[in-house]
């Protein structure tokens, strides 16, 4: 069966030409991933894609581009044993207690 990310040739509406400048938090995810791939050799680009493709089918509709990226990166790093799911969850819970102002732009 054709997977949801494999959209070449599917019908779709007009191209939306609106562009946005990348936010710092988006760039930070991108930089961290490039570092993991190019210098640390802990991930590969194909793995990022596999992680994104295995998100729920409506991830393309409900998540933004870098939200999909970090969801995939987190999942792959846990899969590889670099991170532990429980410690990631605990850290997110701890970060939730921090004021919103500490979240990055």
């Amino acid at each position: 069966m054709r997977s949801h990310h494999d959209m070449g040739g599917e019908p779709a509406g007009p191209v939306n030409m609106a562009e946005h400048d990348y936010d710092p938090w988006e760039k930070r995810i991108d930089a961290m991933f490039s570092l993991l791939v190019q210098e640390k050799r802990l991930m590969r680009v194909d793995e990022l894609r596999r992680g994104i493709e295995s998100l729920e089918p409506n991830a393309y509709e409900t998540l933004t581009y870098y939200e999909r990226w970090i969801a995939s990166i987190g999942k792959i790093l846990v899969e590889k044993g670099v991170l532990d799911q429980a410690e990631v969850d605990a850290r997110i819970a701890e970060i939730e207690q921090r004021p919103d102002a500490e979240l990055e732009a």
């Binding site: 938090w25 760039k27 930070r28 995810i29 991108d30 930089a31 961290m32 490039s34 570092l35 993991l36 210098e39 640390k40 802990l42 998540l63 933004t64 870098y66 939200e67 970090i70 969801a71 990166i73 987190g74 790093l77 670099v82 991170l83 410690e87 990631v88 850290r91 997110i92 970060i95 939730e96 979240l103 990055e104």
Partner: peptide
Amino acid sequence: YKRLAIAVRELLIEKGVVTEDEIATFMARM
């Protein structure tokens, strides 16, 4: 997802996998 991004980054730095400086270098390169 912003919290997830912070969590992943903080944990990678604490484990010594990456450093803040290395991430900054890659951002500047981008």
